[in-house]
């Protein structure tokens, strides 16, 4: 029948359209997740070997451990602090670039300038904080020489403060880019219309810019939150081993060949992140905002 053959052809075209995405997602996303999920239900012989089967013991162990809660609290603390600072800095940098730099070429130039630190590796950028924040670093030296303090501040490096500083440094760009993008799409005449109606600069920010940049804020928040929650390296280096995050625990587990418990922790973290991201998406209809 002609109608059924045309239907099957159009469904074939549909599959062809999605095949590149499927080709990427299946091997690089779906398969690893399934492997981890399967591993989280397996038993372990304690020497890195997995015994196939179905057991909830790994989850029971992870959930019963007092350490898990402590690590989640620590990670959430870093996440919230990093989110607040990257949001504040990212929002105002984007705001400045979009609404205060009149020359568009200059705005794009300054925007690209924001990406310059990313031309070098993450690790170098992190390590470069050490001479600045260290006990004999620039900040301490300056404070001592101006007589503000007599003893060097220990809290600057290898502390939670240092961790947050490093995160903010690394991740602010992930806020700037989507917020800049959302703000750049705000019609400048809307701002003029608001001024015409008598709105102050703060009114414009509160009633026009923030609501209309919501999709960018949500996207940036998703980037920052998921990166911080999934990271252990920055915490490890910048806290000098003094703090840990959720992912550090799996790292330790993997180190002692406890793959199933590491897998169970990973599944748990994934669920927590999915919950957070869906919460963010619930407050902003990103799909609608982006197609607007």
């Amino acid at each position: 029948m002609p109608s059924s053959s045309s239907t099957s052809r159009s469904s074939l075209t549909g599959w062809l359209y999605v095949s590149p995405l499927v080709g990427v997602l299946v091997p690089f996303f779906l398969a690893p997740i399934l492997v981890v999920l399967a591993a989280s239900f397996f038993g372990s012989d304690g020497f890195g070997g997995l015994t196939p089967g179905f057991t909830l013991a790994n989850y029971v162990e992870v959930l019963h451990s007092a350490l898990t809660l402590k690590l989640y609290l620590a990670t959430i603390k870093f996440t919230v602090l990093t989110w607040i600072f990257t949001l504040l800095i990212g929002f105002f940098v984007a705001y400045f670039l979009v609404f205060h730099v009149r020359n568009q070429l200059l705005a794009i130039g300054l925007f690209l300038l924001c990406t310059v630190p990313f031309w070098t590796s993450n690790i170098i950028r992190m390590i470069s904080w050490i001479p600045l924040l260290g006990k004999e670093g620039l900040i301490n030296a300056a404070l001592i020489s101006t007589g503000v303090i007599r003893q060097p501040l220990e809290v600057l490096l290898f502390s939670d403060l240092a961790v947050v500083i490093a995160y903010v440094h690394q991740l602010t760009i992930f806020m700037i880019v989507p917020i800049f993008n959302a703000m750049a799409r705000i019609d400048k005449r809307l701002i003029e219309a608001a001024i015409d109606a008598g709105a102050s600069r703060f009114d414009i920010l509160r009633l026009i810019v923030v609501p209309m940049a919501k999709s960018g804020i949500a996207l940036g928040s998703i980037f920052v939150v998921s990166i911080v929650m999934g990271d252990f390296f920055v915490v490890k280096v910048m806290s000098g081993g003094g703090s840990a995050s959720v992912v550090s625990a799996f790292y330790e587990d993997v180190g002692v060949l406890q793959y199933p418990t590491a897998a169970a922790s990973a599944v748990l973290l994934t669920l927590v992140l999915v919950a957070i991201v869906s919460l963010i998406l619930r407050s902003v209809d990103i799909r609608r905002e982006i197609t607007r």
């Binding site: 809307l190 003029e192 209309m212």
Partner: peptide, 25 residues
Amino acid sequence: AMMFQSYALFPHLTVRENIAFALQV
């Protein structure tokens, strides 16, 4: 008061909120 070319209505506000905007501020 100015009426802008292609109107410059606030896309995220309803008709009522758009009209009440000047009074709100």
